[in-house]
């Protein structure tokens, strides 16, 4: 909880600074855009948090987005599939990708980094080959689907601010994920495996299955994100869609308190981390910093975030040992 407070403070500071420097920040147009993107990226962050908690990593998210994002319009428009069939097929494929990652990691003992790095290359290539590198679009129809990504729900009493649907989707998903992580057996086992896999195995937990499930969740979220991103941008370029998105997701999870060594993580933290990333990007464009500096600024802020976290942790550990030795001396 303390960890979440730290990042929340940082988020508020950055928001306040940007609002003070730019009158555009608090307009409902800007806020709507900002929260929409937070919702879309948040879905990815929530997914990858599960894998990170097991001590793993998923580098293939961006390519899964490209593959699912091009496949949805391809199946609907080029192949003429019905909406439910196309949605089911794309979701199933995402789950299948996660299953493959999980099996390779848990059963074959391959390193998650290597497995998902290969995935990153494989799914990008598959997306480009399948679509012959042509831009995929939805055309005029599919308004219901598009509403999921670009629709809004009016919020009465706020003078025109409307909640973007992706934000609502992310909130729903976030609540589900938080319950899963904190209240269920699955979540408990996930945390135990991430910290001490051997202890979990010796307790009779089927660690393989838990790890596999984490990868399936991650890829399912990436697939859902891919479809939403595709519906949001309307025209999908298989070569460029979702580039670097895995890194955004991982950065948001780390900012939000997920330790890459596993065993730690909070869904609320990931959501706030995602929001911070989006606000930073927003601030860079609103405040007129050169857009070429975008990555550099985000990189520095993340580094400062985790550095502060590590320093705070060490201070706490030091105080703890000091306290204990003083106690035992008394």
């Amino acid at each position: 909880m303390k960890k979440v407070l730290g990042i929340l403070t940082l988020l508020i500071v950055v928001c306040a600074f940007t609002a003070w420097q730019s009158e555009h920040f608090l307009t409902s147009y800007n806020l709507q855009n900002l929260t929409r993107l937070t919702g879309l990226f948040g879905v990815l962050g929530i997914g990858v948090a599960f894998v990170i908690i097991t001590g793993g990593i998923d580098l293939s998210i961006g390519s899964v987005i490209a593959l699912t994002g091009s496949l949805l319009p391809y199946l609907l428009v080029k192949q003429g599939w019905s909406v439910p069939a196309a949605l089911a097929a794309v979701s199933l494929m995402s789950a299948g990708i996660g299953l493959a990652h999980g099996l390779l990691v848990a059963k074959m003992n391959l390193q998650p980094f290597v497995v998902t790095l290969c995935g990153l290359l494989l799914y990008r290539g598959a997306a480009r080959w399948l679509t012959a590198d042509e831009t995929q679009g939805f055309g005029a129809g599919y308004d219901g689907l598009k509403w999921l990504a670009s629709g809004t729900v009016p919020l009465p009493g706020t003078g025109g601010f409307e909640i973007p649907v992706p934000l609502l989707i992310m909130c729903g998903l976030g609540v589900l994920a938080a319950v899963l992580l904190n209240l269920t057996l699955f979540g408990r086992y996930l945390l135990a495996i991430g910290r001490n896999e051997q202890a979990a195995r010796f307790s009779g937990i089927r660690t393989d299955r838990i790890v596999i499930a984490a990868y399936v969740i991650c890829s399912l979220c990436a697939g859902l994100g891919g479809m939403l991103f595709a519906l949001e941008v309307r025209s999908v370029q298989p070569a460029g869609m979702g580039n670097f998105y895995e890194l955004y997701a991982i950065a948001a999870a780390v900012l939000g308190g997920c330790a890459l060594r596993g065993g730690e993580g909070s869904i609320l933290g990931v959501v706030i981390g995602t929001a911070l990333m989006r606000v930073l990007q927003n601030a860079i464009s609103l405040l007129g910093y050169p857009s070429q500096l975008e990555f550099a600024i985000i990189g520095v802020v993340i580094l400062l975030g985790v550095l502060t976290d590590e320093i705070v942790r060490r201070l706490a550990a030091y105080r703890h040992t000091r306290y204990q030795t003083r106690q035992s001396a008394d």
Partner: peptide, 14 residues
């Protein structure tokens, strides 16, 4: 033990 969990969670892990 998984030291990120509380004592009760460790006793009944699994």
């Amino acid at each position: 033990l998984a030291d990120n969990l509380d004592v009760a969670a460790n006793i009944f892990l699994g």
